[in-house]
Amino acid sequence: MRRLTALASGVIAVAVLATATPVASQPGSPPAPGENPLEAARRAAGNYAFAGQVRVRWHDAAGEHEQLVDVRAGGGALMIDGPASVLARRDERPIRRPGSGWDSLWPAGLASMGIPHPSAKYSLSSAAGALVAGRPTLAVDVRRGNAIVERVWLDAETGLLLGREQYAVAGTPVRSIEFQQISVGGPMWAMPSPRVHSPVVAPVSGNQAPAVLPGGYERLGIYRRGPLVHLIYSDGVYGLSLFEQAGRLRTGALPSGGERVAIGGTQGWHYAWAGGHVLLWRGRGRVLSAVGDGPLTDVVQASAGVPRGPRPSFLDRLRAGCRAVLRALKR
């Protein structure tokens, strides 16, 4: 991917989009000046029939990983088909995990979230990119200060996202997806239409969660699913999900491979996965988790701004003290 980008550099003049006035573009076209390229890609994915193969690369504590998944879209639905399958139809997300039947990942009709424009945090610049899967592209560089954090390759004709690469501070790629082959248009591919039992996911009102987290993550919505409260944030390029669950973190049953990380004034655990980073840490009387697809430093910084919970009352502290005494006496 970097080789392709190097070929493209210097060929076409760079158009700075960040400061331009947003202009709505036509469905299924490259982003208009000032438009969020990821919004344009989302719109294009809903307006074109296409099929191809995507290579997913990521890095975690165990080393480098790579996986190929098939992608096909048509009629407003999109299907990711790898060892696990995910179907995106309207706002619903059914999933079929390896060895299992279809299950609901997210029910329909809850989320229609507009994301903030990234210009408040990032500067975007675009230039003609190299061929990706044999198709001409528009390469959009996402920079924070002088450092490039992400490069997105959009199909020059349709606006479809053909590649996306995230970089570490040193400029080395840490995560990427890239179409290895793609065909656009042609016959409509048959999509499965599984009937799944939707989980109860309800919007939450009255939550005291911050509207904005450090790093410019704006809150888009709050939902409750069983014991979990799910707070959804975005900075315009990356999404961040915060999860709250009442209780005490049972550290003995945490997944293996976690690394200790400082989150504000407390210690937590960090895990990497193909889609980004996961943080787990203790709040006051609750367990906090964050899943973000931005750089780890961003996810940690935003998580540090999450209140750990209300200070316990005198009675709560008395109860906690009594339980501590009993635990000490039991030893």
């Binding site: 997913v56 999109l78 990711i80 997300r93 997806i177 959804i232 975005s234 996965w273 889609g275």
Partner: peptide, 17 residues
Amino acid sequence: TASVAGDPVSELAPVGV
């Protein structure tokens, strides 16, 4: 949820893994 708000291909492809 990120695939609802952002690009569905890049957000959902990691779940296929």
